[in-house]
Amino acid sequence: MSEILLNVQGLFVGYGEVPVLRDIHMDIRRGEIVALVGSNGAGKTTLLRALSRVLAGTGKITFDGHDLTHLTPDQGFALGLVQVPEGRQLFDQMTVFENLMMGAFRRRSKGAIHATLESVYALFPTLYERRTQRAGSLSGGEQQMCAIGRGLMATPKLLMVDEMSLGLAPVIIDQLLEVLSTIRKQDVTVLLVEQDVFAALEVADRGYVIETGAVTQSGTALELTESPEVKRAYLGI
């Protein structure tokens, strides 16, 4: 077992007086793909916001040896905690190349940025072909590739991908999942936040099922896929 990259202990988060997340415990090991699945409104995005320090909460979050609890979103980002937001959130009027370069905004070494750019183009040859096109003119799948590519340009230690599959055709989702298993070999750990439970578990090593603000199940992807509760909840069998 490789070393733990992200550790969450007893995390409680609420919006004002309303508690949303209750007593969350979670581990992500270096090099893993971990799926965080659950239906709409279960608290997935809230947990993501707590991890990226946009929302404060009580409890302990440790990332790569640093205590995240008192860091700003910016400081978390600087440590390598990078988010690919729901709905892609590209800079629509800017070119694909410019979008990718915005991912590297905080990096200064031109040579290193160029090397990452090459590796992103290698992962997504389509992005290379479309590099001078406006991001807003791409198809949904290409936009998602651009969003993931932009995240990779920030050289993340943990890439948190929010609702990657939303609105995409199954064949495109499969392509993207394949890319995620490729980038994990390049020393990027992935947290995949998904409503599409079975797509996420297809590629993940382990998963956490979250319902109404609490983790209800966790285990290897196989265990969760086989689990009668998961099948009942998400397939209606």
């Binding site: 937001p85 959130q89 920030a154």
Partner: peptide, 18 residues
């Protein structure tokens, strides 16, 4: 680029350290 990105999508620009 950061100026244009901020104009187009403030939230995303913040996400990447702007």
């Amino acid at each position: 680029r950061a100026i244009r990105a901020t104009a187009q999508n403030l939230g995303a620009a913040r996400l990447y350290g702007v």
